[in-house]
Design a protein around this nucleic acid. Sequence first.
DNA 1: GTCTTGTCGAACACCTCTGTTCGAGTTAAT
DNA 2: ATTAACTCGAACAGAGGTGTTCGACAAGAC
Lengths: 196, 196
Amino acid sequence: MPVTTGKRADAQRNVAAILDAAAACLIRDPDASVSDIAAAAGVGRVTLYGHFGSRTELLDAVFVRALTRAHEALDAVDLTGDAREALARLVASSWQVVDESRMLLVAAQRTLPAERIRDLHENPMRRVRSLLERGRAAGVFRFDLTADWLVAVFYTILHGAADEIGAGRLAPEAAADAITATLLAAFTPPGRPVPG
Amino acid sequence: MPVTTGKRADAQRNVAAILDAAAACLIRDPDASVSDIAAAAGVGRVTLYGHFGSRTELLDAVFVRALTRAHEALDAVDLTGDAREALARLVASSWQVVDESRMLLVAAQRTLPAERIRDLHENPMRRVRSLLERGRAAGVFRFDLTADWLVAVFYTILHGAADEIGAGRLAPEAAADAITATLLAAFTPPGRPVPG
DNA sequence: GTCTTGTCGAACACCTCTGTTCGAGTTAAT
DNA sequence: ATTAACTCGAACAGAGGTGTTCGACAAGAC
């Protein structure tokens, strides 16, 4: 992860171009080589190695940037008010992000250690967790399953939907509703009616 | 996939040993090389290539065998009677199978084309689908989401649970109950109370 | 306008893996 | 006991990747 400050202007431009190209290449092919990425960025391989010590380091930077951007985009979502409606809003904004970057996750899983990926997902998970706990306190989300598990269900369903879209079995315009309906049901406390 | 009939006894033994070793190696490391596998099987690399034309062909055979065995094991599950109870029984028998072979799936995803993997999953999916439709007809499972999506939810949750177990966030002895409770809620028709 | 910083292409060394060929030796079938 | 099927190790050829070094050149900083 090269320091962007204190570098020359063209160097900063190149770093940005490399990150963009890397994301694009890795989405197309999770095994994209450094040569491919450098070429796509319009940059020599040597230049790339001047900014990133290794392919792994580059992958890490790409992944961090994608997660950071997703985090910022999701910060705009209003999570106040009724927890169920907030969940619906969060899903509506999240599923596309997940869908776009799911190939990037595949690439990350092939090179980055599992622990690193879990660490980077901690921040996004916090958002879901706090919403979950708020809904629990309001009595609309269930207590009989652990918070860890319900958070995992949230992300699992999102990624599952992305896979289904990729396989052509789920229409993108139907995704948000299906995910929301499924999650609201999964989060409903036993004995309470499923919303919808 | 070499023909096991008509081969000499030691050849058949070797093929079996190779498949066993391959499964074991690939679970440990999804990128295990042919050399690793041959060594683990106590067999020369040349012998392995005598039975399997390529690494990909070997992977395919390993994956097919794992799915076939899982299919047979799951055939013992009683899926008659109340669809919700049948679902609970299916989950109880399925989640361990998924947990054990999830690393194998990762290995398969790195080498086999996505289409092939989908095709091989068709049979296992049929079982879930028929149970789902039976529960729908009985009025205990929802109609407002497509069957494709609900089947996907079933598998997604199972794989998600396996990942959580692998990450140490879900205790194996708690898995079956968590999965079952989640799926029963997700399958419950809107307006009807969540079981449990 | 100078000087530092960065870029470039080519070539290099190195590694790991795949798949094949060879001949000699071993094992099961009959 | 003979024969055909099988195994083995070593060695080969080839592809493709990573990361580094070199010297010449260009571009931004001041």
